[in-house]
């Protein structure tokens, strides 16, 4: 297939034009995000059920989380979302170098988020505020405080895994951008990972108040 304007290199044979392909890709990505929402939805359900049962314990246990670090991480994740959005805008206005810079910044913010998360985890492991049967901390009043920490670790852990997965793909996009693969003609993969990254941010926006602020 010749690389002509009517049939560019990225157009697959079963699509009639680039717009149809792009719309399909975005639509497919949104359906994938839908499955992500439902995946975390299960955890939010577990959170809601146990919080309703043990409200006192949840309140006491949430005080054990570091509200300041949580707030800082929220700022960092929102900033990374901003840089991600600006990276896509960079490609839309055909400034690939600018886009690469913003993608790099997104990676840096994501890494800082994980480092802060690591220190939070380490502190909790040190105190024995661990999930389930490994829970040895005694400073939280109320019944079954280990369940709060189970939910905390599963939710933030799954979220953290999503950050790591996103970082790997963003790094790949960064390399491709530097190689000049994307332009304002074709940047669908970056747009898709952008959507994913914003979703990871969205989930944190709910996780943060639920776990750190209201317990």
């Amino acid at each position: 297939m010749a690389n002509t304007p009517s049939h560019p290199f990225y157009l697959q044979h079963h699509f009639s034009d680039a717009q149809q392909q792009k719309d399909s890709a975005k639509f497919g990505m949104w359906i994938f995000l839908l499955t992500e929402i439902l995946l975390f939805g299960g955890l939010f359900c577990a959170y809601a059920v146990f919080r309703a049962w043990n409200h006192e314990m949840f309140y006491n246990a949430h005080l054990a989380l570091d509200r300041v670090l949580g707030t800082i991480n929220t700022f960092i994740l929102i900033t990374s979302s901003l840089t991600m959005a600006l990276a896509i805008r960079g490609l839309q206005v055909n400034k690939a170098r600018q886009a690469a810079l913003y993608l790099g910044a997104t990676l840096v913010f994501a890494a800082i988020f994980l480092v802060i998360k690591y220190f939070e985890y380490e502190h909790k492991i040190h105190l024995g505020q661990l999930p389930g049967k490994y829970y040895t901390y005694t400073g939280v009043a109320g019944t079954n405080p280990h369940i709060f920490f189970s939910i905390y670790f599963v939710m933030t852990g799954l979220h953290g895994l999503h950050i790591v997965g996103g970082m790997i793909v963003i790094a790949m996009m960064l390399v491709n951008t530097l190689r000049g693969k994307y332009s304002n003609e074709y940047y669908t993969p970056v747009e898709l990972i952008g959507l994913y990254w914003h979703l990871v941010d969205l989930i944190w926006i709910y996780l943060f108040p639920f776990l750190y602020l209201i317990g």
Binding site: G41, K133, Y134
Partner: peptide, 21 residues
């Protein structure tokens, strides 16, 4: 299906780490 996925993750964690949910 995603809800099944998270259910099974929780079940595996329950077996491995005894998270108690």
């Amino acid at each position: 299906t995603p809800v099944l996925s998270i259910t099974l993750v929780l079940l595996i964690l329950e077996r491995v780490f005894g998270i108690g949910i």
